[in-house]
């Protein structure tokens, strides 16, 4: 076939998702993904490796990106799945979290330490401890939802997409968690704000 026969209007989609795009995506989402990932798996290198792989995977299948409306929840979910798979493969990386706090089998371990909480009041150490205790009384699922809501400001639908739950159960978990959190924080809060 001579070349003039290929004279067609391919109407090709111009490449939006180039190297620079991915570089920017990586840099802008890394701190948030790291903060999330470290709560599932307490090994920094491990989470860094997973983030790297998630982005590499995204890059190698970039043609699919057009079909993904919301890239952020998609990337969060990918990281979550990555970490779960790795934890399953290498049990030794399981974080030593309080086994009494989590009775469910299917959830992802999700631990939050005292240092990871910022309190807007004066008596920080004490309150951070209280919040940590309260969070420890939640299930892994509830902790994860509270985190995604508080930290990343994701919508219930987006959280449902990340955690693989129904939107309604995300809502139920969230209000249940907030009621539990309020039990102890309220007195503290009343001292400072009333």
């Amino acid at each position: 076939m001579s070349i003039d026969k290929t004279n067609i209007d391919l109407n090709r989609k111009l490449n939006l998702y180039d190297e620079k795009y991915f570089e920017g995506l990586y840099e802008s989402l890394h701190p948030e993904l790291m903060t999330y990932g470290i709560k599932i798996c307490r090994n920094e290198d491990y989470v860094m490796d997973s983030i790297h792989e998630v982005f590499l995977d995204l890059w190698q299948h970039k043609s699919r990106l057009d079909k993904i409306d919301q890239k952020k929840p998609y990337i969060f979910r990918s990281l979550r799945n990555h970490l779960i798979n790795r934890i399953r493969i290498q049990e030794r990386f399981l974080p030593a979290y309080d086994s009494t706090a989590s009775s469910q089998q299917d959830g992802v371990p999700f631990t939050i330490s005292q240092e990871e909480i910022i309190i807007g009041n004066e008596d920080e150490a004490m309150n951070a401890e209280k919040v940590r205790d309260l969070l420890a009384n939640l299930t892994d699922h509830q902790r994860e939802i509270v985190f995604l809501k508080y930290y990343s400001g994701l919508s219930d639908t987006q959280i449902a997409e990340i955690t693989g739950m129904k939107v309604q159960s995300v809502r139920n978990h969230l209000s249940k968690s907030l009621r539990k959190l309020r039990e102890v924080i309220i007195p503290v809060f009343l001292i400072f704000f009333v």
Binding site: E23, M48, L56, W59, I117, I118, G120, I186, F189
Partner: peptide, 28 residues
């Protein structure tokens, strides 16, 4: 009350982050 506490962003050492970013950029 809802805003009275929040989560801290995890800090990775600059060197480590830079090496991972470089690894990613090189790869792509």
């Amino acid at each position: 009350w809802l805003r009275s506490w929040k989560f801290k962003t995890h800090t990775t050492s600059k060197e480590k982050y830079a090496s991972y970013l470089k690894k990613f950029k090189d790869s792509i």
